[in-house]
Simulated assay, not measured.
Amino acid sequence: MPEPSQLVLLEQLPSIKAGTKIRFLACVHAYNPKQGELILRDRYPATTPETPTAIVNVTNVLENANHELLEVGAWLNVVGYVTKPADSIKSAVVASKQNRNERTTKPLEPRSVEATMLWSAGAVNLNRYKSAVRGYQKPPSSG
Results as ranks from 00 to 15, higher is better:
P49Q: 04
W75S: 09
L76W: 13
A65H: 09
V8R: 10
S96N: 04
N60K: 05
G143F: 12
C27I: 13
Y44F: 15
A65Q: 06
P2S: 09
A132P: 09
K34L: 00
A95Y: 05
P49W: 12
A92T: 02
E68Q: 02
M1F: 14
I55V: 15
P140F: 05
E11F: 06
N32M: 01
Y136M: 06
T51A: 06
S88E: 03
S88P: 02
I22D: 06
P4D: 09
A65T: 14
N127V: 13
W75P: 10
Q6N: 15
N66L: 08
R134F: 05
E50T: 14
P14T: 11
S112V: 07
K84I: 12
P52L: 01
L108D: 03
K17Y: 07
L7S: 13
V72S: 03
S141I: 11
N101Q: 13
A26P: 10
S120C: 07
V124I: 12
K130Q: 13
S5G: 12
Y81F: 14
T105L: 12
L108R: 08
V56D: 09
T47Q: 01
A18K: 15
L10M: 08
L10R: 06
V78L: 05
P2W: 10
A121L: 08
V28A: 01
Q12K: 11
Q98C: 11
A46L: 06
R134H: 01
L38P: 04
L25A: 11
T105W: 00
T105A: 10
V79Q: 14
E63I: 09
Y44H: 12
P33S: 02
G19Q: 11
A132V: 06
Q98A: 14
N66W: 00
P49T: 12
N57F: 09
K34G: 01
S91Y: 03
K97V: 09
K106H: 03
S142E: 10
S141D: 10
P45F: 11
G73L: 01
I39E: 15
G73D: 04
T20I: 00
Y136T: 02
C27F: 02
E71C: 00
L9P: 02
A30N: 04
P52M: 08
Y31Q: 02
N32H: 04
L38E: 03
T53M: 02
G135D: 15
S142C: 03
E114H: 08
K17Q: 10
R134K: 01
L62W: 08
V78S: 09
P45T: 08
V56C: 14
T20M: 07
L38S: 04
L7V: 15
P107D: 11
D42H: 15
R41D: 08
K130M: 05
N32C: 00
G143Y: 10
L25P: 06
P33T: 10
P139D: 08
F24Q: 14
D42T: 07
A30L: 12
Y44T: 01
